[in-house]
Design a protein around this nucleic acid. Structure first.
Lengths: 190, 190, 190, 190
DNA sequence: ACGTAAGCGAGACGGTACGTCGCGTCTTACC
DNA sequence: GGTAAGACGCGACGTACCGTCTCGCTTACGT
């Protein structure tokens, strides 16, 4: 029963979480690009010099926040059974931070964040696609192209889902996505 | 028989094109977000106050450039036979401005530009999808979701194509895209 | 029966007088320093490039206006009988352009204009003072100092007169001024 | 026993005095109107944004400087015996900042500054004039007119003194001024 | 009276200063 | 040691004037 490294100064924890919360709120309100370090600090009621003691800039703050949040998304290896439960977990996570993702992936978001999100999703498909083996059809596009194609598609669909107030539960969304993906993946519907 | 409206001041034309060119170059070099109006003016050897006489800010310059470029992309209605020649023209256009699109759609690009590009592509598919009529499978996702899915997919594939130095000619790319799309569109492979 | 050089192009005369009038109006309204060439041209409904065809800048316009106006002030040599009628003519002239002088000599005026006005007045006194001959009292200040002293005094009194809506007619003002001056000039009241 | 309020940040004091010094220098060199905030900052080796952290504009800087300097001029009430020691102190003060006053009161100066200086001097005479009681001569000009007359006269004499490299010591100047003033004030020479 | 040279309007352009804002660094004092 | 307070240098922003420069139109003048 440890918890060895994590015990940080209470003040530090408080400062960091307050700043993160402020970033999210402001990003939702005006878009990531329009948020300034000043904004964040005022909202968080934290002195600006304190911000710089913890983060390089707002991108760093976003990164660290995304990293913490990302841990929640990636299932522990043992319980990862691939395409089926993974996507549902991801959708539920996205739903939990719906406001944040809606902004970050949309026209006021950050392309780097979007790219990482897409890469994250692409990795989820890489294993699946590798199972298909060599393509039978000589016109089959390269693996990487298919990965980018489908990962972007999924991100686009998720963004649509978020921008339309999540019509349907994550479960419904998962079914829809699976149907579209299986077609694009060339899987024979069973 | 004169050219009625278009006869603009030569200096104006020169200034505007020079600024556009500078924007493109700099965007390719350091990403759109990092480009400043100062940069553009220095590169274009145009006084900064002259910039503001023509454009509101760099976004405006980008918009106007994209609008001009967009005219080239949209085929004349007469020769538009939908999915088949349209996409190839689009791919050739993208190839012509490969550097620019690679940056603008990527992690150093602009999410608003990317979104517009995606919407442009979505419109190209709307007609096709509307032909399919009511879905037979009750699990078929909503039309708009499928549009966003496929449009994002195509943008993702194009970005991959650009970031990997356009492996294959636009024709080859068009064939690959058509294959992936036809699957996602639910067309029965013939 | 001449008028040899003066006959200028009608358009030129119209432009120049309109610009002068505009300068005066605007100076009265917001003070000379706050008036811009743009203001003047808009008020005069004259194109800005036309302004520069006639004047170097607003100071030049002021100078030329003051020069024209100054001719009216300076009596022809023949009718100049010095201290007595001169001052009254000056006061009447100032009264005629009261708004203008009130602004130009005051806190929103122009120090150079004020200085020239003061020098103009000083010249009116120079002859008078020179008549006094060598001072009997060894403590008598230098002539130039006395000139500057009295010229500034008169300007100050005139400014007070203008800023208080000219209490008393120019004739009354002239009497007051003569009384104050005669004391300062060391003249024995007759 | 500390110095309660005055303990200001050393850097602030340094910045402010450096900026003031730069303003004076530049005003002497090219006249107040021609001095720009940029000039001041370059001369002071202070960043321009730092300037705006302390002053609204160059007029504000001048005002604050004049206010500080003005404290030195106004004698402590106890030692103020009116016309006699006051003027000498004032003249000595002007002599100390001769370059500055010569420019500010002259043709390249600032009319507002000049006006304030004149009002300052007028106040010094108000008490004296009020002692005279009702004028015996019905032609005596109004009190305010006489005040403006004499205050302007003194300013004009001081400016002459400065522009001619202060011929004579302040003591000599004081004697000259007193003689001229006593005449204008209507005092019977004793 | 009328052709023509001028005056003029329109406006692009390069400059320069303005005042504001956000950034990231630093120092000092407090707790 | 973490934080608040805030001065500072830096640099981009968008605006406002300035003075110069074509380029056509129109208009008053002189023959």
């Amino acid at each position: 029963m440890q918890n060895p490294v994590e015990i940080e100064d209470l003040r530090v924890r408080r400062t960091r979480t307050t700043l993160q919360r402020a970033l999210i709120e402001l990003t939702v309100e005006k878009g990531f690009a329009a948020v300034t370090v000043r904004d964040i600090c005022e909202r968080a009621m934290v002195n600006r010099s304190t911000f710089y003691r913890h983060y390089i800039d707002k991108y760093d703050l976003l990164d660290q926040y995304a990293a913490e949040v990302g841990k929640l998304t990636t299932p522990a290896p043992s319980e990862n059974d691939g395409l089926h439960t993974g996507p549902l977990q991801l959708l539920k996570h996205v739903q939990q931070f719906a406001d944040f993702y809606r902004v970050m992936l949309g026209q006021n978001g950050d392309p780097l964040f979007t790219q990482r999100f897409r890469e994250n999703i692409a990795e989820r498909f890489r294993y699946l696609l590798s199972l298909q083996g060599a393509p039978t059809d000589p016109n089959t596009p390269p693996l990487e192209m298919r990965l980018n194609y489908i990962a972007s598609a999924v991100v686009g669909a998720i963004l649509w889902w978020l921008e339309n107030d999540q019509p349907g539960m994550p479960e419904q969304m998962g079914i829809w996505l699976r149907q579209l993906n299986s077609a694009a993946l060339g899987a024979r519907p069973t």
